[in-house]
Write a protein that binds this DNA or RNA. Sequence first.
DNA 1: GATGAATGAGCCTTCATTCAT
DNA 2: AATGAATGAAGGCTCATTCAT
Lengths: 209, 209, 209, 209
Amino acid sequence: MPKVGMPAIRKPQLIDATMHTINEVGLQKASVAMISSYAGVSPAIINHYFGGKDNLLEETMRSILRQLSQGVQQRLALCAKDDVIERINAIVAGNFDLVQLDSKVVKTWLAFWAQAMHQPKLYRLQRVNEKRLLSHLLIELKRVLTPERAKFVALSIAALIDGIWLRGSLSPTGIDGQLAQRIIADYLEKQLPSETVEFHHQRQLAKRT
Amino acid sequence: MPKVGMPAIRKPQLIDATMHTINEVGLQKASVAMISSYAGVSPAIINHYFGGKDNLLEETMRSILRQLSQGVQQRLALCAKDDVIERINAIVAGNFDLVQLDSKVVKTWLAFWAQAMHQPKLYRLQRVNEKRLLSHLLIELKRVLTPERAKFVALSIAALIDGIWLRGSLSPTGIDGQLAQRIIADYLEKQLPSETVEFHHQRQLAKRT
Amino acid sequence: MPKVGMPAIRKPQLIDATMHTINEVGLQKASVAMISSYAGVSPAIINHYFGGKDNLLEETMRSILRQLSQGVQQRLALCAKDDVIERINAIVAGNFDLVQLDSKVVKTWLAFWAQAMHQPKLYRLQRVNEKRLLSHLLIELKRVLTPERAKFVALSIAALIDGIWLRGSLSPTGIDGQLAQRIIADYLEKQLPSETVEFHHQRQLAKRT
Amino acid sequence: MPKVGMPAIRKPQLIDATMHTINEVGLQKASVAMISSYAGVSPAIINHYFGGKDNLLEETMRSILRQLSQGVQQRLALCAKDDVIERINAIVAGNFDLVQLDSKVVKTWLAFWAQAMHQPKLYRLQRVNEKRLLSHLLIELKRVLTPERAKFVALSIAALIDGIWLRGSLSPTGIDGQLAQRIIADYLEKQLPSETVEFHHQRQLAKRT
DNA sequence: GATGAATGAGCCTTCATTCAT
DNA sequence: AATGAATGAAGGCTCATTCAT
């Protein structure tokens, strides 16, 4: 009987090695030889477990997106159903989760974003993710704004999230998640009806006591 | 008897071919063979004029940044010195110039952005550009906001610009420059002192008559 | 507690899988992975039972040759000892046995023939087989022809057998065993002494009544 | 200006190296590295001139078939139009031309024959060649035999040619072209009408005086 | 100035085989 | 007995670059 359960060990190990390698040298130079050598295994292992480099890359992207999605879902689950601002803050916080701000993850993500334009599979993954963010935001905003205005604000917030993230990715100091949340909170206060804002503030005060 | 002035012909020709090729197949697969074949010349030409592929890529990035910079400068020159909003609108418009929204340019830029993280020369170019945008915005905002607040708003606008641009780059319908300008104008109205906004609106009305 | 008698099950199973795979993708692409996967077992099994791919291939060739030899022997055993033509027909029929005309067998054989030139073990197998055919033919022909003439005719018949087989191997309609037997019977009638031919015809007539 | 006319030098050189290598180690082990090393050039050259190994192999097969075809055509051109036997002998002689009997060519051909079953391009080449031989023979035979009988005899001669060739390919002494011609001449004498045979013999006698 | 020839390094992948379980 | 894990070697191919012409 052979060693069993290795896939469950090797797959995440190789995905991590992939992100590590992309972080170090970039996607272009991230060869299977480099990735596998970082993982301390033979290059052939990648084909054994993923059936090719492309699949490994796709699974790596998928892994990042899964983590992002989970981070948002978990935060939303902890929120009150009726505090729109709190819920949007949760969505934003999920997108600036510490895991997502790790240099390894940031560079991998950006590399895939550029790559996605020329690789249908990655493109689809990216699009799904992009639409999910918008959809999450819209669900909340529609409760306090007209549909048209809700869409406008959702687009703005999504743009702020991605913009801050993109600019931070290139900054030597990395992405400032706290600043991101402040910027977006500030934006929200000015866009949402005052009752919504008031309601949120009072809930926050209540929490602290 | 060498033909004179060839560099002035060949260099832009090859830079254009580079963008075209990146647009078609992505940076990863954009080989010198492909680029030169699109330009209708021999691969050796690239080394002749640029001394290597890396330099060609750098010059291509430089060319895009130069165009961007010029677009902003030209628009600013046409603005009143004292209408902050008009000037910021000009900066935004420059960043969403039709030339910059061309698929060729968008994909090339994004490719370089991802690449910049692992290539010092490109990194420096990108940083300069990034700071220039912020600096342009700050100059205007500081005239109507506290330094601290000005920085906060400048970062937000820069994020909105890059975020809209990034999200649009992946969208099948491309980047919607008009929407971008509306989102940012809306943001400005809510962030700037009411006198500043009033002043701008009256100038606009005056212009039309 | 090892299962006993497994070799007797596994070996033919793997030999059959080998022929099947060669039939499907050719000898070049018939990897142990493919062969074992068709057999529904692990690739390591092949080394277990045959000690390597080369041995498996050799055993496969041996298996085909054994079947061929048996087919001829069985047919000869049913013949009258003194009817030369009937006996030669039996030899020919053995070489065009339905088992030997199966696409799997034909392609495997041809692949080995080409291979034999560069692999001593296969070469020896092939030579033995080749000589056996000639020898079988000579034994019969020498009873009715001069030794010199017998050799000449034996070579011709062997060539006809192999030629028809080879040409048929490439034909989309496969090998026409019936036509082969007619061609060779026709050839024999013109090469053998008329008494021999007469004797054969009368025996055939006698059989039917 | 670059070196010109290299393709005309390199292509035959590489095709020759291919046959040489197949002769030495067989098609399976004939890697581009080996072939190019024998030709004294870099492996990349093969891609430069043939665009891949497959094309090189195909061109090699084509080259052999072209030579065969030319050998037959040239011999036919020297024959009297009305001497059927002489013409068939010419066809046979063309197939047993010294060039075609070279070990290099024989092994290459056999390798391709086996390969052809799994590679459409080679298959087509082989089929064309096979049909051409039959067609050449039929043209002559139909002038002296009924269509049905002509086809029967043509198939027989083609089988004899291929069979003698195939058996000789495996023989340590190589292919005996002279014996082949004697066997087929003998066959013809017994299959063709006596006038045809007579006419041929008298022409031969006349030639010698 | 411009080119096709030529190359060496590197990449992804396949594969026969070994090994621990 | 049988297997999946794992590997090192090798294969075909791409590519940026150099060079003679």
